[in-house]
Amino acid sequence: MKKGKATVLVCVTGQRDCDRLIRAGKKISDSRFIPLQVLCVQPTSSGFDADCEELEYLRQTAKNADAEMSVYFHDDAPLMAVGYAKSVHATHIVTGMAEAPVNGFVEIIHKLLPKIPISMVAKDGTVYNICPVAKNDRKAKKLILQN
């Protein structure tokens, strides 16, 4: 990936309560002094049925956080998010917590972008992190397993 201006990427659905993700992403971007981007991927089947009021609320929340929000219609949300993350040079990704049934969104992003930390924000605001394993950590784990 070409070096560009690093960003924090927040992935939202079209639900109003995703505003907590934008707020969490803003804290991370402010602490790192890098811009915030917000992405919403809607299934193509939603088309004109997408909840415009909810999307507008999230867009305004993003704007209040000095972030740009992009909305795409695509049926493979994780793949779209990975491509977008690469295009905006994301160095950290913020998502919601998967509920049952788990759709694999976070797992796919982590598999395709294993070096980018992911913060998952639960409904109660608790943040859970997936951190990349450093090369030195992998070597240490191998040595421990061999002994």
Rank of each mutant, 00 (worst) to 15 (best):
I108N: 01
V10G: 02
N136D: 09
A50P: 10
K2W: 11
D75E: 15
D30E: 06
Y128H: 13
K142D: 11
L143Y: 13
G25N: 03
I130D: 08
F73G: 13
F73I: 03
I130C: 10
I22A: 06
V71E: 04
I22C: 06
R138M: 13
D30W: 01
T95P: 05
V82L: 08
T7Y: 10
L21I: 06
S31F: 04
P35K: 07
C131S: 15
H89C: 07
M120W: 01
I22T: 04
R23L: 06
S45K: 15
A62F: 13
S70K: 06
P114H: 10
D30R: 03
A85R: 02
C52I: 10
V102Q: 13
K63W: 13
K123E: 12
P114A: 10
A100Y: 12
D76T: 02
M80T: 11
A65L: 14
R23W: 05
T61S: 04
S87K: 11
A140E: 15
I28N: 15
R16I: 02
H110A: 10
P114D: 10
S46P: 08
Y72C: 06
R20P: 00
R23C: 02
K3V: 02
K86T: 12
V82K: 02
N147E: 08
G83M: 09
V82H: 04
A24L: 08
T126F: 15
K2D: 10
K123Q: 13
V127Q: 03
V71N: 08
L36W: 09
Y57H: 08
Q60A: 10
A122F: 14
S119V: 04
A24W: 00
N64P: 03
R20Q: 15
A77G: 07
S70F: 11
G4M: 11
D124N: 14
H110E: 10
G125C: 12
V88K: 00
K27A: 13
D66L: 14
V121R: 08
Q146F: 07
M1C: 09
V121M: 09
S46F: 07
V121I: 04
G104Y: 00
D30C: 14
L39D: 00
A65Y: 14
V8W: 01
P132A: 03
V94C: 05
E99C: 12
A24N: 01
H89V: 03
K135A: 03
I108E: 00
A67P: 05
G14P: 04
P132W: 03
P78F: 00
H110S: 15
M97I: 05
T7Q: 10
A62H: 08
M69Y: 07
N129R: 13
V41M: 00
L36G: 01
D17N: 15
P43C: 09
V133P: 15
E56Y: 09
Y57R: 12
T7P: 01
Y84S: 05
K27D: 13
P132M: 05
A85D: 06
G4V: 11
N147M: 12
A122C: 10
T126Y: 11
D19M: 04
